[in-house]
């Protein structure tokens, strides 16, 4: 039996009168890749934001490593070990690559140098560009920096929000390879991805979301074979 890392129990979120999430429950187990699939506006980002404490949760509970983190402030959620790789390869664009990584290790000031070493090991390109201003990196490099910065905070769970958005196909597969490697190193990953095919191939377990609800869930391979899912998200005859 695998240990449970993150458990979301029936949460609802609304932006004013608009219901963004309605009774959503998901689980992420140790060493697992969980994919959230759904069109734009299905609630994937809202779910990640709610877990992160960026969005107020009205009902339901979010439990991380056995602790209730519902409506905890974002910095505490991050400090407790959830690392979000935000949408749109966000970096601190006026700071250097090195500074971006250093600031990522806010909660572990003593271990910054050792974490830096391991990040530079996995991303040699970041080492090469360590003194460059982050805003001048290419999109793919910024995404790597964003991932590296998240790793600096020693997360126990990685959440990636649309990591492929706005990147070239070749770079996308590179980013997915990086995420795969990280998973093999032991990081559980919660991935929100619009590209259903990619997400289902990549994940062990998947949730299909639509208009703030979970429609289908199950092992990713099974969902791939589900005719309804195939019809709605994989363009019928894939």
């Amino acid at each position: 039996m695998k240990k449970n890392v993150l458990r979301v129990e029936g949460i609802s979120v609304s932006y004013g009168p608009i219901q963004a999430l309605d009774d959503v429950s998901i689980e992420v187990d140790e060493g697992e890749i969980v994919s959230l699939v759904g069109a734009n506006g299905a609630g994937k980002t809202s779910l990640l934001r709610a877990i992160m404490g960026l969005q107020k949760v009205h009902t339901g509970r979010i439990v991380f490593m056995g602790n209730d983190i519902t409506n905890t402030s974002t910095d505490k959620v991050a400090g407790s070990g959830i690392g979000l790789i935000p949408e749109g390869h966000l970096v601190f664009s006026t700071m250097t690559v090195l500074e971006n990584l250093q600031v990522g290790g806010y909660h572990y000031p003593q271990e910054v140098s050792s974490s830096l070493e391991s990040v530079f090991e996995s991303f040699p390109v970041l080492y090469k560009r360590r003194n460059q201003i982050a805003g001048t990196l290419s999109g793919g490099e910024q995404q790597m920096l964003s991932i590296g910065r998240t790793l600096m905070s020693k997360p126990k769970l990685l959440m990636a929000d649309e990591p492929s958005l706005g990147l070239a196909p070749k770079v996308i597969s590179e980013i997915f390879n990086i995420l795969r490697d990280l998973n093999e190193k032991g990081y559980p990953i919660l991935l929100a991805e619009q590209n259903a095919k990619k997400a289902l191939e990549f994940g062990d377990h998947a949730y299909v979301m639509e208009t703030g609800r979970v429609l289908f869930q199950g092992p990713a391979k099974e969902l791939m074979g589900n005719p309804k899912v195939r019809h709605a998200y994989l363009g019928g005859n894939v």
Binding site: D75, A78, L84, P86, L90, M95, Q102, V103, T150
Partner: peptide
């Protein structure tokens, strides 16, 4: 310094800063 980096990170993007764990 470390604190200076935190200030600059927060000044650039406070949401991103809180996501990486900086207490705003």
């Amino acid at each position: 310094t470390r604190q200076g980096r935190v200030f600059r990170a927060l000044s650039e993007n406070s949401v991103l800063a809180s996501i990486i764990g900086i207490p705003v």
